[in-house]
Every structure is written in structure tokens, then in C-alpha cells.
């Protein structure tokens, strides 16, 4: 799964609610293959087909405008339009169907110069770094690689993980002087990440494996997307899995 030749980004757009795709996002992501997912959420009282008959043209027109904007920026872009009771299910289904390795959750972005890449130790660091590298290589954005550890003694392992990421980024066209590494010790990883996100224009993170708590309280990536004012690029779970052995190696030996 990790050897997908190209990166494909799914961009869900709530197309009839006036959601906009910021200009800097269009420019930056024109270097990736982009699928625009126009969706319209309908309440249960309404049959999807009922909403389709009334709003299809309006939605399709809005979506076509975005598609044209991406195409004019030189992007490889296609689009889908879905009427749904459950946007999350739709996003996951279309992402899997079209083999998109990441999903861009939109928020306003007046500029896009500094991005924050959150790296945890349990994910496939290389895939995230390669994706970021490929998308951002032609731009001049500055990439902050970011790792939170609850325990300051594990700082060293964090450094090692970020170094792996930095090397991969370099291989994929991001110069060292555009890379910043930050290992932060904090008991509240989510809060720390949200605070750091304020100084950046885009957050990149891996979709976390749903623990039981996350199944109940919602996925971390959705929480973050809901709480930051930035667009969030979520790298899908399927592309982050690493074999156990590799995980131990990356973490510097087996853990107790």
C-alpha cells in the first residue's frame, strides 16, 4: 500500500453552503492529483433523490467552477458530486474508491507559507513526508516537522523520527533550509498541536487509528479540523500502516 506511485488528494467541498476553496490552496495543490468531492448534506426527512432533482444543476455549476480554477492553475483535477445524509461516510467511501491517500479538509487560508506536519511514532513517517514533499516541492513553503511526546525522556526518539521525515522530505525536493524540526514535551498532545497550528497556514497529520475512545468521541483529525482555522490535510489510515518490525526499529528497539 505504501508504494502508490502518485499522491491523490480528495478535497470535499460543501458545495451548496457557499464553501470556498482558497486561492493559495488551489495554487499549492495544483502539483498533486486532486479529486474535488462536491457534496450536499441532506436531513433524514428528505430523500436524496428529492434534493438531487432540485439542486443538482446549481451544485454541478458551483463544482465546475472550482474544477476550472484548479485546471487553470495547471492541476490534474477531476470531480464527483454526491448527495448524502452522512458526509463522513461519503468522504471515506470516495477516498477509498478513488485511492486517494489524503483528504484536505478546507478552512480559509489567505496565504500558505508555513505548514505544520504532525508526526507521531506509530505512523508511516515516510509516506507523509513523501506526500508533503511531492505536493510542496514547487512552492516555497516552510515545513515544520512536529512531534509531541508526553515524556521529556523520550525526546531523543522523537528527534530520530523527525530526522527520518526530514531526509525523506529532502529526497522529495524540499531543501533543508525550508525544514524546521520541533519536538515538544506536553501532557496534552492535542492542545499542544492546536496551539502550534495557530502560527501555521496548513496542518498535515495522519488519520489516527480509532481507539475505543476515539470511536466514541470522534477522530482526532476531525477534532483538529473543527478547532483550527487552517485547512487540514489528513493522510488516510490505510497508507500509514507500518509492519511491526519496522515500527520497533523506528522507535529504537522494542518497548516495555
Amino acid at each position: 500500500m505504501t508504494d502508490v506511485p502518485e499522491n491523490r488528494v480528495l478535497v470535499p467541498i460543501e458545495v451548496l453552503r457557499g464553501q470556498d476553496v482558497p486561492e493559495p490552496v488551489i495554487e499549492t495543490f495544483s502539483s498533486a492529483s486532486v479529486v474535488l468531492l462536491g457534496y450536499h448534506e441532506i436531513p433524514e426527512q428528505t430523500a436524496p433523490d428529492q434534493a438531487r432533482m432540485q439542486f443538482e444543476d446549481q451544485a454541478q455549476n458551483a463544482l465546475t467552477d472550482f474544477e476550472t480554477a484548479f485546471a487553470e492553475a495547471g492541476g490534474d483535477v477531476s470531480s464527483r458530486l454526491v448527495f448524502t445524509h452522512d458526509p463522513l461516510k461519503t468522504i471515506e467511501r470516495v477516498a477509498a474508491e478513488l485511492e486517494c491517500d489524503s483528504v484536505l479538509l478546507l478552512n480559509p487560508a489567505p496565504v500558505l507559507r508555513q505548514i505544520l506536519v504532525a508526526i507521531s511514532e506509530t505512523v508511516n513517517v515516510e509516506h507523509i513526508a513523501r506526500l508533503v514533499g511531492d505536493v510542496m516541492a514547487d512552492s516555497d513553503v516552510e515545513v515544520t516537522l512536529y512531534h509531541v511526546t508526553p515524556d521529556s525522556e523520550e525526546r531523543e526518539r522523537g528527534e530520530r523520527i523527525l530526522e527520518t521525515a526530514a531526509e525523506t522530505l529532502e529526497e522529495h525536493g524540499i531543501d533543508r533550509d525550508r525544514i524546521v524540526k520541533a519536538v515538544v514535551a506536553d501532557d496534552e498532545p492535542l492542545e499542544a498541536l492546536l496551539a502550534s497550528a495557530e502560527n501555521h497556514h496548513l496542518v498535515v497529520l495522519g488519520e489516527s487509528k480509532p481507539t475505543i475512545r476515539e470511536r466514541i468521541w470522534g477522530d482526532v483529525s476531525e477534532t483538529i479540523a473543527g478547532q483550527t482555522v487552517n485547512p487540514v490535510l489528513v493522510v488516510r489510515r490505510d497508507y500509514l500502516e507500518v509492519p511491526e518490525a519496522e515500527l520497533e526499529e523506528a522507535a529504537g528497539g522494542p518497548r516495555g
Binding site: P48, D49, M53, Q60
Partner: peptide, 23 residues
């Protein structure tokens, strides 16, 4: 004319518009 291609998770109409199946 109101119908389209049925899959397990959606119905796809001629114009490409899809209706998600959610129940």
C-alpha cells in the same frame, strides 16, 4: 429516468451525480 446505477453504497445517475446510501 429517476434511476441510475446501483452499487452497495450509492446510486449513480447519468450525469455522474451520486446518492449516498447511508442506512
Amino acid at each position: 429516468e429517476g434511476s441510475g446505477t446501483v452499487t452497495d453504497d450509492a446510486t449513480r445517475h447519468e450525469g455522474g451525480t451520486e446518492l449516498e446510501r447511508t442506512i
